[in-house]
Design a protein around this nucleic acid. Structure first.
Lengths: 214, 214
DNA sequence: TACGCTATTGACTTATTTAGTCAACGTGAT
DNA sequence: ATCACGTTGACTAAATAAGTCAATAGCGTA
């Protein structure tokens, strides 16, 4: 099952160096596999060209590794952690946001990377893993939505639309926080302002509870 | 003031061909000036390489032209058309959305192009025009916000936050409509479903009015 | 100090892509 | 037939691409 070049050497690296490489590569792959340059990746990761290829062999293997790695992280630390039995959908959304923030602090580009990879139709070799992951993700979110108590909503508000609004708001809010940061500073910036960010997010969720619930 | 290669030859072209070139170029420049390929542009625009350089001289002049062109369109057909005297902020947002849709149907990537260009710090040569444009834009939006009747809002909802929510929602809604379309189909897709899109957008705005107003 | 072993380097190669050029071509009017 | 003009795409030189490899750095052991 496992081929022997299972990136063991890379995974034995000190985690700080690992992260530097992973984050540099994810960021560079955001624009698509073809447009990504390994030279840019090694420059940003602060390692030599040779080392990258020593660990990953080819650009494509690096890419495949990144996909699996990202899926592994998000599955284990996000999807599997979601408590689908909550009644209040805003509790769920709040919990999911906390989980996402935790992951994003370590891997700033991981969620964008996964969605970019998913949208990039050319990336067919990895479709199996990705498809399963996407299904798992959709199932989880559907479950959250089904189990929540929709009777809490005002009768004249379509719960699905309300939930869309909340998710788009969280997305827009996140973008507005990161848009004017140089990408390499996103991680540190988020660590420093973690508390105030959460507070602001909670304020938005409070608005939603006040306005969308009975 | 005007140098003689003022793109007159290009602007004398049939508008359909003009649009094809402009849209192909804007789309390709979304990933940044450096990563854009003139070969991709001409392929997508369906013209020969020579013609592009016959009209624009260099890649950079094409880029500068695009920025000016986009600014001109958005200033004249969006910013200048905004009626800042409306009391109901949701009327303003609705009107602005209509204006945006009209422009986007002709130039699907124009708004994304302008914001990408603005965020791309390396693009300093064009900063004068861009800065003025951004200021104009911010002034207009601030004016809309100042003139609207904030007493219409529920007392326990911060109007600024509510407006942010509305704008992020519109953004997210738009993204959700275009994300799974191949970029070249965005234009036609929007033309075909124009009415139903507007209807759906209005439903969201109705929710906001119901929930955020007294 | 000397040795061996692994992690790491960056100059290098070969192939591809790049922006930009230019002689040639098609077309319609006179 | 000839001119004028919009248009073409093969071409060039320079840059960039992925991937290689002989050489070095670092470090524990003897």
């Amino acid at each position: 099952m496992h081929n022997e070049d299972d990136f063991q050497k890379f995974l034995a690296l000190e985690t700080e160096k690992q992260s530097r490489i992973i984050n540099a590569a994810m960021k560079e792959f955001l624009g698509g596999f073809k447009k990504a340059s390994t030279d840019v990746i090694v420059r940003e990761a602060g390692i030599s060209k040779g080392l990258l290829f020593h660990y990953f062999g080819t650009k494509e293997k690096l890419f495949d590794f990144l996909i699996d790695y990202a899926i592994g992280i998000v599955a284990a630390e996000f999807l599997e952690q979601i408590d689908v039995r909550r009644k209040d959908i805003f509790d769920s959304i709040w919990q999911m946001s906390l989980l996402k923030q935790d992951i994003s602090r370590r891997f700033p580009a991981i969620f964008e990377f996964l969605s970019c990879v998913y949208l990039d139709a050319k990336v067919c070799p990895a479709k199996d893993h990705l498809k399963k992951f996407t299904e798992l993700r959709n199932e989880k979110l559907a479950e959250v939505y089904e189990h929540c108590d929709k009777s809490l909503f005002r009768d004249d508000v379509d719960p699905q639309k309300a939930i869309n609004i909340v998710q788009w708001t969280l997305q827009g809010w996140t973008d507005s926080k990161t848009a004017f940061l140089s990408p390499e500073n996103v991680g540190t910036e988020m660590k420093e302002n973690y508390a105030s960010y959460l507070e602001e997010m909670r304020e938005y969720l409070d608005i939603f509870r006040k306005c969308f619930y009975k």
